[in-house]
Simulated scan of single mutants.
Amino acid sequence: MKSVVIFNTAVSSENLGDQIIMESVNREINSVIDKNTFLLDLSTHAGFNRKYNNFLKESDFSIIGGTNILSSQFNLVSWRNQFCVGYWNSKYMHDVILIGTGWGSKNKEVKPNAKKFYKKILSKEAVHSVRDSMSLKKLTDIGIKNVVNTGCPTLWQLTPEKCQKIPRNKSSKVVTTITDYLMDYEKDFLMLRTLISEYEEVFLWVQGSEDYKYFCSLPLEITQKISLIPPRLSSYDEFLNNNEVDFIGTRLHAGIRAMQKNKRTLIISIDNRAREMGKDFNLNILEREHMSELKNIINSSLETSVELAKNEIEKWRNQFKP
């Protein structure tokens, strides 16, 4: 029986967006990998002990699922890496396949240790999938050419038919998000104040472990006018399923989840993730620096027209066919 390791980016994550990503990653894995294959999940956040090294060594291949897990640095000590793998674990890794992964930082030069690590663990025969053109360039620049830009798997079912079901005109309610690790009090205050002035009801989903703490640090004149959605993906889904609502916020995958649920969505870009994917796949993006434009966008017709990389997606899927 074949065995495959799934490097699960949602286990032990402080960001519930990783659960959204892994749901789509698992959907794709289950659709392309033979049902008789034994799958073992290992956490990319918490790492794993020597007990699993032999399973890694004997596995047929491994898959890394989404997120900004690729990095320009690789430290010998696992806990210092974005992907919690160190030198000793990496010795047992082989034939790793990427699906919808991204690069954590655009501007940093890829260090020799990182280049060596990726060239050692990544499959030289398989087709790797990354989430944006910047990540594609990073890998090709270090000599890894068997890569296609598919976008994140969370986008793969946002077909033209699906996008046509998403309203263009504003709702009376809006759900938003803020981001604990890239705070901008002035711009986030302006975003929330604009939402309060333009919508009858404003809700905030707590996606990150420190988002609530950040929310509580904002002025009471803002926070007392916003209703909280509990920090569970199931709670967010239930809210989206039972409300006609727009999404406007800084969390990329909270926005993509809203699109999956047929909600009018505007993602406030605060880093390279939303910026690069927005550019590549025509997502509705507003840079946080341009927050003064938000009111006009809210009150305008907003079309959703995601441009899927159909050929690249099929190329990644088809490699698993017998």
Results as ranks from 00 to 15, higher is better:
3 S>N: 12
42 L>C: 01
259 M>I: 14
259 M>C: 09
151 G>C: 09
146 N>C: 07
97 I>G: 08
216 C>S: 15
299 N>G: 07
33 I>F: 07
125 E>V: 12
242 N>Y: 00
160 P>Q: 12
3 S>K: 15
117 F>A: 03
238 E>D: 10
49 N>I: 08
220 L>F: 05
281 F>H: 03
322 P>V: 11
210 E>P: 00
264 R>C: 09
103 W>F: 15
191 M>T: 11
102 G>M: 10
58 E>S: 11
8 N>H: 03
31 S>M: 02
105 S>H: 07
23 E>P: 00
253 H>F: 02
192 L>H: 00
306 V>A: 12
253 H>D: 04
73 Q>E: 14
140 T>N: 15
131 R>F: 14
44 T>S: 06
142 I>L: 03
252 L>Q: 11
130 V>Q: 08
233 L>T: 10
37 T>F: 06
124 K>L: 01
72 S>C: 10
163 C>H: 04
132 D>P: 06
90 S>N: 08
190 L>Q: 14
40 L>S: 04
102 G>P: 11
84 C>S: 10
187 K>A: 15
249 G>D: 11
83 F>S: 08
261 K>L: 10
281 F>P: 04
109 E>F: 07
288 R>M: 15
70 L>D: 05
232 R>V: 04
53 N>W: 06
10 A>H: 00
287 E>G: 14
211 D>T: 12
306 V>P: 06
102 G>S: 10
29 I>C: 02
288 R>T: 01
61 F>A: 07
128 H>N: 05
223 T>V: 15
218 L>D: 12
266 L>K: 13
152 C>M: 13
23 E>R: 07
257 R>E: 12
137 K>T: 12
220 L>T: 13
271 D>G: 14
90 S>T: 02
311 N>H: 12
316 W>L: 08
